[in-house]
Computed example of a mutant assay.
Amino acid sequence: MLVSNWMSKNVITVDAKGSMQDAMDLLKKNDIRMLPVMKKGKLVGIVTDRDLKKASASDATTLEIHELLYLLTKIKVKDIMTKDVITVPPDFTAEETAEVLQQNKISGAPVVDSKGMLVGTITQTDLFRVLISLTGVAKGGIQFGLQVEDRPGSIKEVADIIRTFGGRMVSILTSYDDVPEGYRKVYIRMRRIDRSDLQKLIQELESKAGLLYMVDHKKNVRKLFEEKIS
């Protein structure tokens, strides 16, 4: 999934010569936390709600309210913005973007194309939407977490069992985190499983994999199996 498919394309920006009050008003009006800063049509910085709160707190300690309001109109965005802007290209994948945000401890980034043009913004909220879409959680159903051998065909064996019970796979995700060598974790979300056959399905799955957990979203049933895995 590419950034271009999930970014916000209607970008709200602020001019570098704008006031701190202008930036605060834009953030509040549009219910956003980040503003790309522009100068003559080019991206020159970024200002966040955190930057504005920090600047307000440092300058407001000894001021009366009318003095503070006056100050907010005089401080320029260019004086408080972050100039070394971390950006991502529109052809980055969602996971690459998540890694950039995590490594730099930021909540979002401007999206800039190969010509240096600002074409969007991508935030943690957008990446949450990607996660919801990838996992299919909005469709409900049942999800199993399993630990399988890391070999060709191991996931197919599990999927085939689910199909024999009439299950339709909504999503299949895998991970190599926190598993013994030679294994991987698999997370399968499915629909159309007859709940009366659920215990039989669990027994069949246990013959091919180590069960970690099961979540039945429709019934709000959650069961842990992880302690059974050696």
Rank of each mutant, 00 (worst) to 15 (best):
S4I: 05
M7I: 03
K9Q: 14
V11D: 11
I12E: 05
D15H: 10
G18V: 02
A23M: 04
M24P: 00
M24Q: 12
L27F: 02
K28E: 07
K29H: 06
L35Q: 03
L35T: 03
P36F: 02
V37S: 08
K40H: 10
K42P: 00
L43I: 06
V44D: 05
V47R: 03
T48G: 08
D49I: 02
D49Y: 01
D51R: 02
L52Q: 06
K53S: 10
K54W: 01
A55L: 01
A57P: 00
A57W: 00
S58L: 09
T62M: 08
L71C: 03
K76Y: 00
K78R: 13
K83V: 03
K83I: 02
D84T: 08
D84K: 12
I86T: 09
D91A: 06
F92D: 03
F92L: 07
E96D: 11
E99R: 14
V100G: 03
N104I: 05
K105Y: 02
V112F: 02
V112W: 03
D113H: 10
S114Q: 12
G116W: 00
G120T: 10
I122K: 11
I132L: 15
I132Y: 04
I132P: 05
I132K: 15
S133K: 15
T135Y: 03
A138H: 11
K139P: 03
I142F: 05
Q143T: 14
Q143W: 04
G145A: 13
D150V: 10
P152D: 09
G153I: 04
S154D: 01
S154R: 14
I155W: 04
V158S: 14
A159Y: 01
R163M: 03
F165H: 11
R168N: 15
V170A: 14
S175T: 07
D177E: 13
P180H: 10
Y183C: 11
K185L: 11
R192N: 14
I193H: 09
D194I: 04
D194N: 15
R195S: 12
I202S: 09
I202M: 06
I202K: 13
I202W: 00
E206P: 00
G210E: 04
L211A: 08
L212K: 12
M214A: 08
V215W: 04
V215S: 12
